[in-house]
Nucleic acid binder design. Structure first.
Length: 572
RNA sequence: CGGGGUGUAGCUUAGCUUGGUAGAGCGCCUGGUUUGGGACCAGGAGGCCGUAGGUUCAAAUCCUAUCACCCCGACCA
């Protein structure tokens, strides 16, 4: 240890905000080179290797084959799939001396598809699952929290190729189980959630979330059944799509629409305050632009529209809130007074909560006026009805109908996708089937953030003294601490135990630094080594102390039996 | 990209309002005393005060620009 580069810090570096980041820095695991770009010091690198090793073993066990692809990728491949243009600013682009375009790979669908289409042409060679553990590059809008969101980070990515949807389903399930084994072996508390597949695209996808309060995402899950989803994709249960309403029969006893003057009152807050009404009665009218023209989306005043859901409902690629000009064009009124009543020639869609508003309030499409007593079906009608809003914890589970969601934050450490033919089609990744027919391969893709997983583990396992590594992740499982290296017997005994530990095949660290014990113990605790073997006073009785980081439990063990103790307590 | 904030020694920072050429704690080096949970004494090394320009007799301090980093929002493993 006296030679190990593990520069521990007594104070928190000010660049860090979350505990896991502070601890990685303080305990000498990583050092920052630039925003979102880190050097892994010996300890940090060792932890990465531990994570990688578990991943590797489980992936291999599941039949996947390891490869290593280039990080530097030619633009041509990305042109083929169209992602050269779609990926946007997040892609690190560079040119070589001949001014040819390249990028630093943020993910490798193109590269792997290129490989497979060139080397596989028969159904007999399928299915196949190839993976790599490699550095990825993404020019993140905002790198943060150390390894949580870097611009350069290490990821395991796997890609599978199949002849049928059914075969993909089978491999997807296989990977799902593999991931469960990986995160269980790493000793992490996690949950699997339904996810939005985002830019990588394709169909079905699930995220593996490590539970932690500092997580960037909210997980909505049901305590009754196994339903869990990200905030992005959590469904809203309990509200039936109301078909019956609106064919003219249901407005008995309801007042006529009334126009009210609301000078300058534009936002939901302003209008509700002005009219002394609650936001649940408001029909929020949002104008969006899509590649198929403008669309009006309606959600309740106290709900937030989920653009991902809207996109899916409309089946469009491009979606953004309309510019003021467009809104004025559609509603013939200044921004802030839009409403669905009387609008013609524009597609209107609504959240399922909308028809349930008995007598709503909404913009009059006329400056400084709103309408009250608006009734769905009598005064306006949506072309499509569906779940369009972000779920709230008060919403019901869409799967079993349980009345309330539970919400907890989590860190996304793994993501599995059924890609389908999104890439293979564009890149003509085909094979010949039994009938000598050319078919497009069906793909799946499976990622794990390696550094992120390590950091997430710290987030879950630490105390005020530092990190408490789960055994499989610890850079060293055991630290041997001679209390005073000046005392020959202590140092020699420690060295002997060190050698024994190595022999058993453990990662052992000998703290031979000429410091006071207090300093050494503090450092080892900060670093998070699960087991300390303290060689000190008890040596004269032929004993050493074995102390557990997690519980503080101390065992006095005879020096000759240390090897046996370790075999029993660490190796198993 | 928008909003907020910070740049002074390896780390944490004082000084900036009210200009006069930099101070502390920790760490590091030397010697000594210590030695079971971040010891003590003595001595020492280390900073063109983020960078560039300007104002001034004089700038860490005032002004302008620029860069870097951190935090909050829209994106993602």
């Amino acid at each position: 240890m006296s030679q190990l580069l593990a520069p521990t810090l007594r104070e928190d570096p000010k660049e860090a905000e979350v505990v896991s980041h502070k601890l990685l820095l303080r305990a000498g695991y990583i050092r920052k080179l630039a925003a979102g770009i880190y050097t892994y010091l010996p300890l940090g690198f060792k932890v990465l290797q531990k994570v990688s090793q578990v991943i590797r073993e489980e992936m291999n066990r599941s039949g996947a084959q390891e490869v290593l692809m280039p990080a530097l990728l030619p633009s041509e491949l990305w042109q083929e799939t169209g992602r050269w243009n779609v990926y946007g600013k997040e892609l690190f682009r560079i040119q070589d001396r001949h001014e040819r375009d390249f990028c630093l790979g943020p993910t490798h669908e193109e590269a792997i598809t290129e490989l497979v289409r060139r080397s596989i042409n028969s159904y007999k060679q399928l299915p196949i699952n190839l993976y790599q553990i490699q550095t990825k590059f993404r020019d993140e809008i905002r790198p943060r929290f150390g390894l949580m969101r870097g611009r350069e980070f290490i990821m395991k990515d796997a890609y599978s190729f199949h002849t049928s949807k059914k075969d993909l389903d089978k491999e997807y399930k296989n990977m799902y189980e593999t991931y469960c084994r990986i995160f269980e072996r790493l000793g992490l508390k996690y949950r699997v959630v339904q996810a939005d597949s985002g830019a990588i695209g394709g169909g079905y996808s699930q995220e593996f979330m490590v539970l932690a309060d500092s997580g960037e995402e909210e997980i909505f899950y049901c305590e009754k059944c196994d339903y869990a989803a990200s905030r992005e994709s959590a469904g809203v249960g309990g509200e039936k799509i109301v078909e019956g309403i609106g064919k003219g029969g249901d407005e008995k006893g309801k007042d006529k629409v009334k126009e009210v003057n609301t000078p300058g009152q534009k936002t939901i807050e302003e209008v509700t305050a002005f009219l002394k009404e609650s936001p649940e009665k408001m029909i929020k009218t949002l104008v969006y632009e899509t590649e198929n023209g403008p669309v009006i989306a309606l959600v309740r005043g106290d709900h937030a529209l989920n653009e991902a859901k809207l996109k899916k409902m409309l089946g469009v690629e491009d979606l953004k809130l309309a510019a003021d000009k467009v809104i004025e064009g559609v509603t013939k009124a200044p921004v802030g007074f839009a409403g669905p009543v009387g609008l013609k020639g524009v597609k209107i869609v609504a959240d399922t909560a909308i028809p349930l508003i008995e007598q709503g309030i909404t913009g009059a499409n006329k400056e400084d006026y709103h309408l009250t007593n608006v009734v769905y079906g009598r005064d306006y009608q949506a072309e499509l009805l569906g779940d369009l809003r972000f779920a709230l914890s008060s919403d019901a589970c869409p799967k079993c109908g349980q009345a309330k969601y539970s919400v907890q934050r989590g860190i996304e450490v793994g993501h599995i996708f059924k890609l389908g033919t999104k890439y293979s089609e564009k890149m003509k990744c085909v094979y010949l089937d039994e009938g000598n027919k050319e078919k497009t391969m069906i793909m799946g893709c499976y990622g794990i953030g390696v550094g992120r997983t390590a950091q997430a583990a710290i987030e879950q396992n630490h105390d005020e003294d530092g990190i408490i590594w789960p055994m499989p992740l610890a850079p060293y499982q055991v630290a041997i601490i001679p209390v005073n290296v000046g005392i020959k017997e202590q140092l020699e005994a420690a060295e002997k135990i060190y050698q024994d530990g190595l022999q058993i095949g453990l990662d052992v660290l000998l703290d031979d630094r000429d410091f006071r014990v207090g300093v050494k113990l503090k450092d080892i605790d900060l670093i998070g080594i699960p087991i300390k073997i303290i060689v000190g006073k008890a040596l004269k009785d032929g004993q050493v102390e074995i102390k557990l980081r997690k519980t503080g439990e101390i065992n006095l063990v005879e020096i000759g039996k240390v090897g046996e103790w370790l075999r029993q307590n660490v190796c198993s």
